[in-house]
Amino acid sequence: MHYQGTVYRPPSEANSILLQVTTGCSHNKCTFCGMYKGQRFSITPDEIVYADIDYAARHFPHARRLFLCDGDALILPQNRLRTILVRIREKLPHLDRVGIYANCKSLKAKTIEELEELRRLGLKIAYMGLESGDDHTLTAINKGATAADMIAMAGKAKAAGIKLSVTVLLGIAGPDRSPVHAEETGRVLSAIDPEYVGALSLMIEPQTKLHADVLAGDFVVPGPLAILGELRAMIAATNLSNGLFHANHASNYLPVRAKLPEEKAATLDLIDQALVGNLSLRPEFLRAL
């Protein structure tokens, strides 16, 4: 199959067919993100996409999942996405779902009816980077959307029947604003009520604006216990009707997987045990993005 540049996908799509229908990210301005740097956003030509679907059908005919890469595939015009999904359904009939990255810009460009059509054609899950529910932090990291925007656009996806996996970033507000970041992120997660939440811990990537801020002394990365305390406060402020809160990514100091609301109290107790030193944290050299 054809791939251009570095291909990124969510951890939960590790065993999925990766079909690159766009290259890069149309926003590509977040201060913390090192993905797609030096890479212009572009749309993969139809003939390449169709050839890759045919290749996947020959080599992975019984695959259950497929992920549409890159970081902004939902921004494709509706007609183009429709045609791609129809061809995927015809060639790979055993798929249970197709996944995609989504952001406020791409969701705003689609009506609920268009999103419903995509869901009927197999698009079952969208991965959305919230990062923070704190507007001050969202502005600082140049996310390009407010917390209210995030809630509204996530609501469109849910109204269309598309499951949501929302990513948040521990430590991104710095030490001083950490309590507000945790509380507001919990509030926004509760308002969105996604099926899945994935919490990652901040790791500074070279060649990013945030890296330059750290070197200049304009941003301080919170330490492990501060990050853990932030995670505790965020989970305490998050009320999901029936969701999974994951903080078991390789960047995190303490693996956490909690079904909310049932396991909320037990998860807070687990974090408390780590905060007082009764549980070992992942050492720095084992952390990774």
Results as ranks from 00 to 15, higher is better:
289 L>S: 09
180 V>L: 13
178 S>D: 10
6 T>R: 15
117 E>L: 15
284 E>P: 01
222 P>H: 12
14 A>T: 06
103 N>R: 13
269 D>W: 04
129 G>E: 06
87 R>Y: 12
206 P>R: 15
41 F>D: 03
149 D>P: 09
250 A>T: 13
258 A>I: 11
73 A>D: 11
102 A>C: 11
237 A>F: 01
224 P>M: 04
146 T>W: 02
214 V>D: 07
152 A>P: 00
285 F>P: 08
267 T>Q: 06
25 C>N: 02
59 H>G: 00
149 D>A: 07
246 H>A: 14
224 P>A: 14
123 L>N: 04
205 E>F: 12
124 K>C: 08
194 P>Y: 12
232 R>T: 00
243 G>R: 06
225 L>Q: 13
144 G>Y: 11
170 L>Q: 10
255 P>D: 14
117 E>F: 03
138 L>A: 09
267 T>V: 03
99 G>V: 00
1 M>I: 03
268 L>Q: 07
245 F>L: 15
201 S>M: 13
102 A>H: 01
257 R>E: 14
88 I>R: 10
56 A>S: 14
111 T>N: 06
143 K>V: 09
118 L>T: 05
13 E>V: 00
199 A>K: 10
234 M>H: 02
79 N>Q: 14
141 I>E: 01
34 G>F: 08
132 S>C: 10
22 T>D: 05
52 D>G: 02
255 P>Q: 04
92 L>R: 11
31 T>G: 01
187 R>L: 13
58 R>Q: 15
53 I>S: 03
143 K>M: 08
28 N>I: 08
29 K>L: 13
69 C>H: 04
234 M>Y: 07
281 L>R: 03
175 P>L: 06
25 C>W: 04
289 L>Q: 09
140 A>C: 09
209 K>C: 01
289 L>C: 03
52 D>V: 02
6 T>Q: 13
56 A>C: 12
220 V>I: 15
262 E>R: 11
50 Y>M: 13
179 P>F: 02
243 G>C: 07
97 R>H: 07
119 R>T: 05
239 N>G: 05
262 E>I: 01
162 I>C: 06
75 I>D: 04
123 L>I: 03
218 D>C: 07
84 I>F: 03
132 S>E: 06
287 R>N: 01
109 A>E: 14
236 A>G: 11
269 D>H: 12
165 S>H: 12
155 G>H: 06
8 Y>L: 07
84 I>Q: 07
206 P>A: 10
198 G>P: 00
102 A>D: 00
121 L>M: 11
145 A>E: 12
154 A>Q: 01
59 H>D: 03
23 T>R: 15
192 I>A: 06
272 D>M: 00
2 H>N: 13
79 N>I: 08
165 S>V: 03
4 Q>F: 13
198 G>I: 10
269 D>R: 14
201 S>I: 05
151 I>T: 15
115 L>E: 04
97 R>D: 14
218 D>N: 14
118 L>N: 07
69 C>Q: 12
227 I>Q: 15
13 E>I: 00
86 V>R: 14
235 I>P: 02
71 G>Y: 05
173 A>E: 05
37 K>L: 15
